[in-house]
Design a protein around this nucleic acid. Structure first.
Length: 785
DNA sequence: GCTCACACTTAGGACTTATGTA
DNA sequence: TACATAAGTCCTAAGTGTGAGC
């Protein structure tokens, strides 16, 4: 990624300004366990995007090509059949056109969705629940949302309780229709009585538009669903219990190494290598065209590990005299061969792989078939640490069954070890955790690599929902929290001052907490680990941030802050070196302990979720003007982009970016020439003259003036579209939109907005996201974050 | 109050597949 | 049909946060 000093090249986030928030000075005293506010519409409640004076270059202006309104059908569990509403295809629960193709092969529990969140009284009024009133939590893991009401969970032996569990899908059920547009209200009324009470609706074909389906969706409206909500706790409940029964087939290993026999050169001469030596040499060779080759640390680490495999007395004595090109070229030709395979060959290969992997792809959790996420053991390779990682290039050794601990239900059969003659390291039956297997990370032996269920699983969905509920809870507390930290900017105790300023930065700039890091990790920072050199005060009240954050992504931002913050930062810097900690009295534990005094379960990362989601909600609400689907999609993308900028979600500029821009410019120029020509022809046609010959000297068709005018207009539209595409492409070249959508934006905001504005959800969520967010699909259209 | 093991979420880039366009 | 590009998926690194043990 390049970081040009040219202002125009910077992602927008780097040109963002923070307005001082003057409303904060009339703060109330800071107290532990602040009570949630009633969510007034004060400036304080507004998302970052509305508070910052963002210098924005227009918006994303192209709708996705949505010609394929594919319909996601929430696949039904295959283990046991269920007759419940729960297994209705998503399309029937949400919207959209039938699409047979996408439904058949998936069988995981992606089924829609019981939205079991606890009832609150409307979005602005959050009753204090027990947790809130319980004060600082010294207790174990306070669960913020109703953990007794798992998302999606539909064990087959619980049919009887199907009733109404979608009724309590959100607090907005309590809301009257008053907040809805009239058209919406009518639709809801029409639908409220239409749902059959029993739910044998496995396949409901919908031919009408998404919105119609959405609104006609026969949602049971049970106002007192609070009481009818299933009282189940996570199966086999109990402190920390995640499942009662767990069955799976373990993990699959990468194939054993097949030597290729291509000889690398040492001092210009071919060298014989053992298969093990050749394997590691090949790992290096295939990376010859990557940036890692420019990093001495990478080469040094590789050499250190390879040398051990070569042995002290090997012919090869230094890396500089090695020529890996023959292996690199062999690898390239293998890649090319693969590319040249016919579609049928590729398909056959894929099917073969599927057949081999099928059994590892699924687990059965409490009787429900769920997809496993990463069931493939990581193959050996060279460690590709990001940024200036001190361990880059080290050999990541092959993982064997004897490295792997399996976690499985007591009554489940122990997975057969797929490599004959070997056996698992250990078998556990720990139902307080969600992992299915783990092994020690060969690069950092103290750490682990886990095998978890896929994002579409109930367990993940449940925890996702809890995350968003916690962030929503913050909405009710945020005013008090901001008042509290504002008051503490000038606290006489420096620790408190640092806590206040750090919280301010986490809240306003969506910084990460910043845990301490070891010396054998890349040198990156978060809020608590900011160094003096990372924050430069520029009077009267500007702070210039410049540091490497997670994944060594650079955070560069100049913000105007409140004067007390500015002064506090100046004071924290006093007498320190550039490499010293800015917040020397603070770490994430202390910070989070403090945050928990303000709201149960509050930690630094909740602010990111909160600010991202509230920004989306706010921007969608402000910017949706009742346009068509394409225009609404643009509004969504624009909001999504703002969130990505706030969270500093960047991507590197693609290698082909400048070529693409050049090509677009050329095309635009060509079209402009076409217009000039057409205009000349038009002038002649108006005088009754034939058009001039084209550039090849050939005669052109003689068109009448009307036809020429139409052609000119069409070409102009084409140019405009290309200009917009160009702008969007440039605008988003360093912004990654996906990360926030996957991790920070409460899907219920999106689903409800889609329902309100007749946008098919498939325009916003792809198949994976639909599966991941199945739990949110039943949300009431009036839902607001 | 601190460290560390552990469990989990968040993240960008590589790779693959789908789609659009000439 | 071939190629370019966009979209989707996979991979695994790199974070956050909890709680036990000292």
């Amino acid at each position: 990624m390049s970081y040009s000093s040219d202002e125009d090249d910077k992602p927008l986030v780097f040109r963002r300004n923070l307005k001082p928030d003057k409303t904060k000075c009339s703060s109330q005293p800071s107290k532990p366990s602040l009570k949630p506010s009633n969510g007034s519409d004060s400036e304080d409640d507004k998302p970052l995007s509305t508070k910052f004076s963002t210098v924005s270059k227009g918006n994303t202006n192209h709708a996705k090509n949505g010609s394929h309104t594919s319909v996601f059908k929430a696949p039904k569990p295959q283990v046991k059949d269920e007759d419940s509403d729960e297994e209705k295809p998503l399309s029937s629960k949400f919207i959209s056109k039938p699409n047979v193709g996408s439904s058949s092969k998936v069988h995981q529990n992606g089924s829609a969705s019981r939205d079991n969140q606890s009832k609150n009284i409307g979005m602005n009024k959050r009753p204090l629940n027990d947790e809130r009133s319980s004060g600082p939590s010294s207790v174990k893991k306070p669960k913020l949302s109703d953990s007794s009401t798992p998302v999606n969970r539909k064990p087959v032996n619980m049919k009887a309780e199907t009733k109404s569990d979608s009724d309590d899908d959100d607090e907005d059920d309590d809301d009257s229709d008053d907040d809805l547009p009239i058209s919406q209200r009518r639709k809801n009324q029409a639908s409220s009585s239409s749902k059959p009470s029993s739910s044998k609706q496995k396949v409901i074909k919908k031919n009408s538009s998404s919105l119609n389906q959405t609104n006609k969706k026969s949602k049971k409206v049970v106002k007192n669903s609070k009481y009818s909500k299933p009282s189940k706790v996570p199966p086999g409940s109990g402190e920390g219990q995640k499942w009662s029964s767990l069955v799976h087939n373990g993990v699959i290993f990468p194939p054993a190494y097949k030597p290729h026999g291509v000889k690398m050169l040492y001092k210009g001469k071919p060298v014989d290598l053992t298969p093990e030596q050749e394997e590691v040499a090949t790992m290096f060779a295939v990376m010859l065209d990557t940036d890692y080759m420019t990093k001495p640390k990478f080469k040094e680490n590789f050499w250190g590990d390879w040398r051990q495999i070569l042995g002290k007395n090997h012919l090869i004595q230094n890396l500089d005299d090695c020529d890996f090109k023959p292996i690199y070229e062999w690898h390239q030709s293998e890649k090319e061969k693969k590319k040249q395979m016919t579609t049928e060959e590729k398909k056959a290969l894929k099917e073969e792989k599927m057949k081999l992997e099928e059994k590892y792809m699924w687990a059965v959790v409490d009787g429900v078939k769920e997809k496993v996420g990463n069931f493939r053991v990581e193959p050996p390779g060279l460690f590709r640490g990001r940024g200036e990682h001190p361990k880059m290039g080290k050999l990541k050794k092959r993982i064997h069954p004897s490295d792997i601990t399996i976690n499985i239900g007591k009554d489940a059969p122990i997975p057969e070890c797929p490599i004959s003659g070997e056996s698992w390291k250990e078998i556990r039956h720990d139902n307080t955790v969600t992992w299915l297997a783990y092994w020690n990370d060969p690069i950092n032996i103290k750490e682990f690599k886990y095998v978890f269920l896929a994002a579409s699983s109930s367990l993940k969905g449940q925890s996702d929902k809890e995350k968003y509920e916690k962030a929503r809870m913050l909405k009710g507390y945020i005013q008090g929290i901001r008042n509290a930290y504002t008051k503490d900017f000038g606290h006489k105790d420096e620790t408190k001052r640092q806590v206040a300023v750090a919280t301010y930065l986490i809240d306003k700039l969506a910084l990460r907490a910043g845990n301490e890091k070891d010396d054998d990790e890349a040198d990156t920072v978060g809020c608590c680990t900011l160094k003096v050199e990372n924050v430069e005060p520029s009077p009267p009240n500007i702070l210039k941030f410049d540091f490497l954050g997670k994944d060594s992504i650079r955070y560069q931002n100049e913000v105007e802050v409140e004067l007390p913050v500015f002064k506090a930062i100046q004071q924290f810097r006093t007498g320190k070196k550039g490499s010293d900690d800015l917040f020397d009295k603070l770490d994430t534990s202390k910070l989070n302990a403090h945050l928990k005094e303000l709201m149960p379960g509050l930690t630094a990362k909740v602010f990111r979720t909160y600010n991202a989601s509230i920004t989306l909600d706010d921007m969608l609400s402000r910017e949706t003007k009742g346009g068509d689907v394409a225009q609404n999609v643009v509004v969504y993308q624009h909001a999504n982009k703002e969130v990505a900028i706030i969270c500093n979600h960047q991507r590197s500029v693609s290698k082909s970016h400048s070529a693409q821009m050049t090509r677009l410019n050329e095309k635009i120029d060509e079209l402009k020439d076409v217009i000039k020509e057409l205009e000349a022809d038009l002038a002649r046609a108006k005088k009754g003259k034939p058009p001039l010959k084209n550039s090849d000297g050939k005669p052109k068709r003689n068109l009448n003036p009307e036809a020429l005018e139409k052609k000119i207009a069409q070409t102009k539209v084409k140019i405009e579209k290309m200009e917009r595409d160009k702008e969007t492409k440039e605008d988003l070249k360093t912004v990654a939109l996906g990360t926030s959508k996957i991790n920070y934006l409460d899907p219920r905001i999106t689903v409800a907005w889609c329902k309100r504005h007749e946008v098919p959800i498939e325009k916003i969520f792809n198949k994976s996201l639909l599966a991941k967010f199945a739990w949110s699909m039943d949300v009431d259209p009036s839902f607001r974050f």
